[in-house]
Design a protein around this nucleic acid. Structure first.
Length: 404
RNA sequence: GGGGGGAUACCAAAGUGGCCAACUGGGGCAGACUGUAAAUCUGUUGUCGUAAGACUUCGCAGGUUCGAAUCCUGCUCCCCCCA
């Protein structure tokens, strides 16, 4: 196979990229690769701590995919070993290490989801437990001698924790070394990571150098801001859009992002061409409503297909804009002639976490039955044969109460 | 090894014998508004109970007291300083 011209490759590679360290070396590597007709080894390490992939993860996986499409070799490292250490990056507390079984289960779901983004036939998947797990204490000691304590604690996350009198376990210092060792073992040419991974990626360079290898180039992608518009997308902040979520969820969540995020999302998590991006940039400002609907549609289509995206769009317009009860609202059936208290129905249907919460919502007008607000906690319904009542609990929970 | 500080609800953080289901902020939830599930404003936020009230909750286990998040004893965990 032959590789595209280096400039062409660089323009693909640089889309959305924050920093390439050092850029010249990447150009050299690409030229050499093209001349020798040899693909570069592109490394991406992931720790299967949380198996649910969201758009934040997709940024980096998509970058890996772009390298694949350019003809390079994608190596996805499942951090079976490193997950058991716990990456301290950006953490304000020690991560709970996972057990071997958890890691295995998570890894499996991770891979299944990652294949939605990567070219599955061209991806090499490895587990770093295969080489890290067999290192001896002495190997580790030798490795540890290559980095100083001063170098470690100058890291932002560590120094903050240190200043705040929060614990830093010694083993957390070993994490970057383990990740770096992966690069040495695989002889990677490029390693991908988020901007927060810079330290870890650079350690890989140093270890490779001291091993006599040509050091890898580090490529940093921005951290995708979550739907709240301030923090990075993360499951623990609950500001994420999962790639496995139902289409209507994806669509709705995309619409809930702040307007300023429209462009970055298009750039980082969709396939729209660079030409289109320019147009989007102006549209995002002049017509944010439609630009955002375009975004929601594009993203939903990527993971669920066109038809599902159309349905999701309709669903959104029906329920959120026109405030109708969706057709697919869960149905609950009752015997004709029977009488039930609405609060009990809501509790049985699991539409509210507690009766206290239901009462609160009733007081605040958050519960409607056939468009009538129900404020009385003792409100009762006697069902007649053929009844179908539309129940809405809060903003987003629905039920159809059917007597038959 | 020695000395000091700390552990409170989802998170942060007040409270140091009854007025504490616990100030406040964030988050969550709801309402109004909106192109939007955004922003903003308002309300609300342990469980059960229509309510009155009952029950569980302030690191863990005991104890003192009419009454404890608050006092005592033991334990566990964390942080800092000195060595």
């Amino acid at each position: 196979m032959s590789f595209p011209p280096v400039e062409k490759q660089m323009s693909v590679i640089k889309r959305g990229t924050v920093e390439i360290v050092p850029e010249e070396e990447l150009i050299e590597k690409l030229s050499k690769s093209k001349a020798e007709n040899r693909p570069l080894k592109i490394k991406l390490g992931v720790d299967p701590t949380r198996p649910d992939l969201h758009l934040g993860h997709s940024v980096i996986l998509r970058k890996l995919r772009q390298f694949q499409d350019l003809g390079h070799e994608a190596i996805l490292i499942i951090g079976g070993f490193t997950a058991m250490i716990g990456d301290p990056t950006g953490q304000n507390k020690t991560r709970p290490p996972l057990t071997a079984e958890e890691v295995r289960d998570n890894a499996e779901t991770y891979i299944t989801q990652a294949k939605k983004i990567l070219d599955e036939h061209k991806t090499t998947i490895v587990d770093n437990n295969d080489w890290l797990g067999s290192m001896t204490y002495m190997d580790v000691v030798k490795l540890a001698s290559k980095l100083t304590v001063a170098r470690m604690i100058e890291r932002d996350d560590f120094s903050k924790r240190y200043q705040n009198q929060e614990p830093i376990s010694l083993h957390e210092f070993l994490y970057p070394l383990a990740q770096g060792q992966d690069s040495v073992y695989l002889r990677s040419d490029v390693e991908l990571g988020g901007t927060d991974q810079k330290f870890n990626l650079l350690v890989g360079r140093e270890l490779q150098k001291s091993d006599g290898q040509e050091p890898q180039v580090c490529l940093m992608m921005p951290l995708l801001v979550g739907t709240d518009g301030t923090m990075k997308m993360s499951k623990s902040y609950d500001n994420y859009i999962g790639i496995d979520e139902p289409a209507s969820e994806v669509y709705g969540k995309c619409l809930s992002i702040p307007d300023e995020l429209i462009y970055p999302y298009f750039e980082l998590v969709t396939d729209v061409s660079t030409d289109e991006l320019t147009a989007i940039q102006t549209k995002a400002v002049q017509d944010p409503r439609n630009a955002k609907h375009d975004l929601a549609f594009t993203i939903t289509r990527m993971y669920h297909g066109k038809q599902a995206a159309i349905d999701a769009k309709n669903h959104f317009e029906q329920t959120v804009i026109q405030k109708n009860i969706p057709d697919d609202a869960p149905a609950f059936t009752f015997n004709p002639g029977s009488t039930h208290r609405l609060m009990d129905i809501i509790a049985d249907a699991n539409l509210s976490p507690s009766n206290g919460e239901t009462k609160r919502m009733m007081k605040q007008g958050g519960i409607t039955l056939d468009d009538k607000k129900i404020n009385d906690p003792n409100f009762e319904i006697t069902f007649q044969k053929g009844d179908e009542l539309h129940l809405k609990v809060g903003k987003r929970k629905y039920g159809r109460l059917i007597a038959q």
